[in-house]
């Protein structure tokens, strides 16, 4: 999967949880939860959504690394077959 395509998928998963968000308007390098209103359950559902859609294992100990959209895309990039 190309990075652009991966980014679109992440955006779509985020929007399925918080449809009011326009992911393209976010600062991809800044902490995600400082820019939009996601509670703990939304965030968990977001991670579960990525796990299910992309079939990527995301251990709980890695959650701390997933701060910005860029972090998330890069993390998934490293987990998916090139």
């Amino acid at each position: 999967m190309q990075t652009a395509e991966l980014r679109n998928t992440v955006h779509a998963i985020l929007q399925s949880i918080a449809p009011e968000i326009d992911p393209t308007a976010l600062d991809a390098a800044a902490p995600l939860r400082e820019q939009i209103d996601l509670d703990s359950m939304d965030y968990l559902n977001f991670i579960i959504g990525m796990h299910e859609r992309l079939n990527v294992d995301i251990p709980e100990s890695d959650y701390q690394k997933l701060v910005s959209l860029d972090d998330i895309v890069n993390y998934l990039r490293g987990k998916l077959p090139a």
Binding site: Q15, S16, A18, P19, E20, D37, D42
Partner: peptide
Amino acid sequence: MELLGHARKRLGA
């Protein structure tokens, strides 16, 4: 999805 977004915008997560 529209309703979900509508409610979230007004009420918060």
